[in-house]
Each structure stands twice: as structure tokens, then as C-alpha cells.
């Protein structure tokens, strides 16, 4: 992969990667760090990675960095009584999407990650299993559970009123 190809990847995937990481970890500073780390690792291996596989490499790296940092921070998070999600005031979202994204925070992290990869990036089960290290059937089960959970959450009046 050449430097030009690398720079094209930055233009093409930095935003998508940032959205995925931000929605997964709910912390914009941490998300920025993870995106920068992911691209830094891509650059370090720029001569060994094909441009075609770079996107998958970026998402895999970002996911693993997130998991690692999340483990390190888990002690700190346990001290917090509840997750404090960053406020999402975005007029571009429809009401349903706003509720849906709030509901996303109530899902377990693994379910959140796989459903984001599926919906945001359109990855197949096979690709998601490569990124997350899960089996294809596990990926399917997690996505199904996530959808059912989201359906129930957005179907409840409390979620709408929240």
C-alpha cells in the first residue's frame, strides 16, 4: 500500500471508524484516541497490508484497542453507578433514530459492537466474526438479541419519554 492509498483510506474510513468507536464506547475523547491509534498501527504496517484489506484491519484494530482499554478501565467504571452516555443532541436524527441510539447504550457492549458493524458498515456475519473474533453463529445470535432488545426498548413508553 502506498502513501497515497493510505491517505485515501483516511479520507474514506476515518469518519466511519470514528462513528463506530464513538457509539461503542460513548466517549468522544477515547474514540478519537482509538481512531488515531488504529491509523498509526496501519501506517506502521503499511508495507504489509493490502489496500483492499485495510478497512477490515482498521475496524479489527479499533475494536481490539477498545476492548483492551475497556478492560483497563473496567475497575473505574465499576465505581460509577451507571454509564454516563454523552448527550446526543443532533437535529439531523429522526426521533426514532434518536431513541434507537439511546436504546443502543442499554445493550451489552458486544451486542452493541456487532449491530453497529452490521448497520453502519454493512459487514457480513463472516466479516464481523473476523473483526470481533466471534463465530458466525455467535455474531448472528448477538445481532438477533440486539434487535429484539432494541425493539422492546423502543416499543416501551419509558424509552420514548426518556
Amino acid at each position: 500500500m502506498t502513501t497515497d492509498q493510505y491517505n485515501q483510506l483516511v479520507d474514506k474510513h476515518a469518519d466511519g471508524l470514528y462513528r463506530f468507536v464513538l457509539k461503542t464506547c460513548n466517549n468522544s475523547d477515547k474514540a478519537k484516541d482509538i481512531v488515531q491509534d488504529s491509523f498509526e498501527r496501519l501506517w506502521q504496517n503499511v508495507s504489509n497490508i493490502d489496500a483492499e484489506k485495510a478497512k477490515s484491519y482498521l475496524f479489527t484494530t479499533a475494536y481490539h484497542i477498545f476492548v483492551d482499554t475497556h478492560r483497563k478501565d473496567s475497575k473505574q467504571e465499576r465505581l460509577n453507578t451507571s454509564r454516563i452516555a454523552e448527550p446526543m443532541h443532533n437535529s439531523q436524527y429522526s426521533d426514532l433514530q434518536e431513541v434507537l441510539h439511546r436504546a443502543l447504550n442499554q445493550l451489552p457492549e458486544i451486542q452493541r459492537s456487532v449491530v453497529l458493524l452490521r448497520d453502519y458498515e454493512g459487514y457480513s456475519y463472516d466479516e464481523i466474526s473476523e473483526i470481533t473474533g466471534l463465530s458466525e453463529s455467535q455474531v448472528k445470535v448477538y445481532i438477533f438479541r440486539a434487535r429484539v432488545a432494541l425493539k422492546e426498548i423502543i416499543g416501551s413508553p419509558a424509552a420514548v419519554l426518556e
Partner: peptide
Amino acid sequence: ASTVLEPDLHLIFPYK
């Protein structure tokens, strides 16, 4: 079908 998430395209990485 209503649970399909749509990415917020206005959310961009600031340090590209």
C-alpha cells in the same frame, strides 16, 4: 426493521 441503525453522517472525525 425499525431497529436498523443509521449512521449520523454529520458526525465526522475532526483530525483527519
